[in-house]
Amino acid sequence: MPSEKQQEYKDNAIKENEAIKENEEIYPNPELNENVDELTEDLDALLDEIDEILEENSEEFVENYIQRGGQ
């Protein structure tokens, strides 16, 4: 029988592994891109992507983005 201490240690390790697995599911490894060219070389594809994901209604969005000053 493992001692209480060993058991606690083991339980903690299991909990921790689960938490990591959970994180990894949310953040899968990015696919490695072999083609690490300069930004300019596939700029068109990138700009297409930006057109797709840039927040709609930029004007309203930027206008409404107001923060309180911090440090």
């Binding site: 990015p30 490695l32 891109n33 083609n35 690490v36 930004l39 992507e49 930006i50 994901i53």
Partner: peptide
């Protein structure tokens, strides 16, 4: 956000 952040997209694509 990994799918919307422009820097994070550049990083994902190896740029």
């Amino acid at each position: 956000r990994p799918d919307k952040g422009l820097y994070l997209r550049l990083q994902k694509n190896g740029h």
